[in-house]
Every structure is written in structure tokens, then in C-alpha cells.
Amino acid sequence: MLHLKSMLSTFLIVLFFSCNNMAQQNQEQDAIRHATPIEVPLQNGKARAYFASGCFWCVEAIYESVKGVDEVISGYAGGHTKNPTYASSNTGKTGHAEAVEVIYNPDVVSFSTLVDVYFGSQNPTQVNGQGPDKGSQYRSIIFYQNDEQKHIIETKKSALSKKLNANIAAEVYPFTKFWKAEDYHQNYEKRHPEDPYVQNVSIPRLNRFKAKFPELLKDAKN
């Protein structure tokens, strides 16, 4: 009986600290959701936008194919921890999602069009993931830097919800920080076309997007 009481006491202590830790994480994540957005200034006439929509290998390739987009960088955003890594984000405890930084020419492609690309290149009703990738680190988040962008996002999200008669899974977050992913993740689809995941998930997803939005694609020579 004494041994049982000791085990029960240990379990309650562990549960107490676990619950406290979860409560702290939730508070930290709520602070990110309600933070004041940071507006990234133009650099050499180029703007930046941030999106999370499942595996960043897929999302990077999609935005790279869009006219007016100069570069896409894979990384992490939306969480409450500093210096996230691929390993730590995969635990689902950092609050971060795999995300991309889209560097684009606003004279060629608008933020509004990039939002259309976002919603049009995913399953917008899938919660906590895209396709076979499941977990909070693969959830859909779309980031705004000012009230105008927030209005664009929420208007398009609401219209899509009505069109599909379904809840749209994408969360809407203020942009605060983007953490660049490890070098081996950058341009992964282009550098590893033979990878089974790229063959079976990334390329089919990219091709579905291309078929849906041919007018947005770069010329083949680009």
C-alpha cells in the first residue's frame, strides 16, 4: 500500500508539472497570436510574404513557379520558441509550422494574388496538415503584416468558406518572426527530384497548382 501511495504521489507531481508546462506554452502561443504585426520594409523594391501550408518543400516549389516571385526560402514561423530546428518543430511543442518566405516584386504580383495561390494550392479544409503530413507543425497559417493584408486574407477566407460550405482550416496570424530552415531544406524539390516524397507528393501537388493557375506561371525559360 505504501508503494502504491508513493507511485500515485509521483504520478500527481509529474501531472502537475506537465499541466503547468502546457499552460505556460498555451499562454506563450496566445501571445504570438495576438502580437502586434511586424511590417517588413521593401528591400531593393522587393516585398516579403509568409505562408505555412504543409511541407515547406511543396510550398516553396509552388511559389517559385509564380510570375513576379524572385525567391522562396523554407523555414519556421508562428511559434513561441526561439531558434526552432527541423527536429524541434517536429515535436509539435514549439508552436511553429513549416513556412516559407516569399520574396516578390509587388509591381508584378500582388499580395492578394499570393493569397489566391495559397488557398488554391492546398486542401483548405484539412486541419493540422496537408496530404500525408499531419501534425501542428504542418498546419496552415497565413501571416499578415498590416491591417490591409489582414482584411485581404479574412475576406478571401470567408468567401472560400461560403463557396465550399465548409470551415477553412488556415489560421490567421500577425507576422512577427521567420526562422530560416537548415540549408539542406532549401530548394529541396529542385535538388532532389528522385526523392520518393518529391515524386509522390511534392510534384503532383505542384502540377495540380499549375493546371489550376496557368496564367500565373513563369515562362518555361524562367
Rank of each mutant, 00 (worst) to 15 (best):
K162Y: 02
L216V: 04
N26S: 09
N123H: 07
H96T: 05
L42A: 14
K5T: 02
R191D: 14
K157Y: 09
Q149M: 14
A47F: 13
P214Q: 09
V127F: 12
Q130W: 11
K163W: 00
Y173V: 01
F16Y: 14
G129C: 12
Q126T: 07
E148G: 00
E71R: 15
L164K: 13
M22K: 14
Q199R: 15
S121R: 08
F11Y: 10
I13L: 14
L217S: 03
D147Q: 15
N21G: 14
Q186E: 12
A211S: 13
I103M: 03
Q29D: 05
L114Q: 03
G54M: 09
E28F: 02
R33N: 12
Q199Y: 04
E71P: 00
S112M: 00
A52Y: 08
Y104D: 11
T10Q: 15
K190T: 12
D183V: 05
W179A: 03
G131S: 06
D133Y: 04
H3R: 15
V127N: 05
P204G: 06
V14R: 03
N146R: 05
S136C: 04
E39Q: 14
T113G: 01
H151I: 04
A170Y: 04
Y188N: 12
F17P: 05
N105V: 07
N165I: 01
E215A: 13
Q43Y: 00
F178S: 07
G75P: 05
Q27P: 00
F119G: 03
E64G: 06
L206E: 13
A77P: 02
P193T: 06
V69M: 03
Y184V: 01
G95E: 08
K157G: 08
T10D: 12
P84C: 03
H96Y: 07
S18Q: 07
A97P: 07
A211W: 00
E171K: 14
A159W: 02
R205S: 14
W179P: 01
K180D: 02
Y188L: 09
V109T: 13
K218H: 10
I62V: 15
D133P: 10
Q29P: 00
V72E: 11
D219P: 13
Y188S: 08
T113R: 10
Q27V: 10
E60G: 01
K157I: 11
F51N: 05
G79V: 08
F119Q: 05
K218E: 11
V102Q: 05
K218Y: 14
A211P: 00
V40A: 07
E60K: 02
K210D: 06
Y76M: 02
H3P: 00
V100H: 09
